[in-house]
Computed example of a mutant assay.
Amino acid sequence: MDNQPLKHHFFVIMGPSGSGKTKVTEAVFPSEYKVVSHTTRKIREGERDHVDYYFETPEEFEKLIQNDALVEYDFYHGNYYGVGKAAIFEKTNDHCAYDVLTFKGFQQIEQFFGSKVIPIYFDVSKDKVVSRLNIRESNPVTIEQRLKLYDEEILVKNQVSSYPNSFIINANDDFEQVVASLRQIVECIDSIHCRE
């Protein structure tokens, strides 16, 4: 499996919490295009195992690491998150695929698979994040925690833009416009006119 090129592009979606990246990607890509990540965090209400994540015990996750089954993994907010090598190969066999990941995750995947990995960053203002989090979150502690992360997550923008095949989307726009922006990138990525 190692050193084999991907047949189709793998889009890595990044951006601060509250940028809308998850809902936008779900509106653009068919559900079967998502590469499902592994995590040791607890399943949340409304989530489904093997659909939203592969929910693993810490021991199961450690076994994935030992077996070199993950192309990237990280420890984030007290839990492991990671993406399987085989899952990316499988999902990109017949069409493009995507996942919403951290910049560190993107770097590891890009180092392994190369230029077929396309980074897309959702750029959003702190004011917009505050208004969105106030709508969707009822716990003020959760809102505060996510806003603290914003300052770190927004710094990733310049790192992402240093990659020649990267895209920055203005996530301050309304939902339909952001969806249209992402859809345009995905549709044109194989075209030689994409960068013109």
Rank of each mutant, 00 (worst) to 15 (best):
M1N: 03
M1F: 08
D2Q: 13
D2A: 13
P5Y: 06
P5Q: 01
L6T: 02
K7T: 06
F11P: 12
V12E: 03
I13S: 11
G15C: 03
P16S: 15
G18E: 08
S19E: 02
G20W: 03
G20Q: 09
T22V: 11
T22Y: 14
T22W: 06
T25L: 11
V28H: 09
F29T: 01
F29P: 00
P30T: 00
P30H: 06
P30A: 01
P30M: 07
K34Y: 02
V36F: 00
S37N: 11
S37G: 13
T39D: 01
K42D: 12
I43F: 01
E45C: 09
E45I: 03
E47V: 06
E47M: 10
R48L: 07
R48W: 02
R48V: 10
D49I: 05
Y53F: 14
Y53V: 03
Y54C: 02
F55W: 05
F55Y: 14
E56V: 09
E56H: 09
T57A: 10
E60I: 05
F61M: 08
K63Y: 02
L64H: 08
I65Q: 10
D68H: 15
A69S: 14
L70E: 04
V71G: 10
E72H: 08
E72M: 09
Y73S: 10
Y73T: 02
D74E: 15
D74N: 09
F75G: 07
F75L: 06
Y76R: 10
G78N: 06
Y81C: 01
Y81H: 10
V83H: 02
G84F: 00
K85F: 09
A87Q: 03
F89A: 08
H95C: 10
H95S: 12
D99M: 00
V100K: 06
K104C: 05
K104R: 12
Q108S: 13
Q111M: 03
F112L: 07
I118D: 05
Y121T: 09
D123Q: 07
V124W: 00
V124E: 00
V124S: 01
D127R: 10
K128F: 13
K128Y: 06
V129G: 12
N134L: 15
N134P: 05
N134M: 15
I135A: 11
S138M: 10
N139W: 07
N139C: 10
P140M: 03
P140N: 12
I143M: 07
E144G: 05
Q145V: 10
R146T: 04
R146M: 02
L147D: 03
L147V: 02
L149Y: 09
L149G: 08
D151K: 04
E152L: 09
E152F: 15
K157P: 05
N158S: 15
S162T: 08
Y163C: 09
Y163P: 04
P164A: 02
P164T: 01
N165F: 12
S166F: 07
S166A: 15
F167W: 12
I168H: 03
I169C: 11
N170M: 11
A171T: 03
A171R: 04
A171Y: 07
N172P: 01
N172S: 05
D174N: 15
F175W: 01
V178G: 04
A180V: 12
A180T: 11
R183S: 08
I185N: 03
I185V: 14
D190W: 04
C194L: 10
C194A: 12
C194Q: 15
E196C: 14
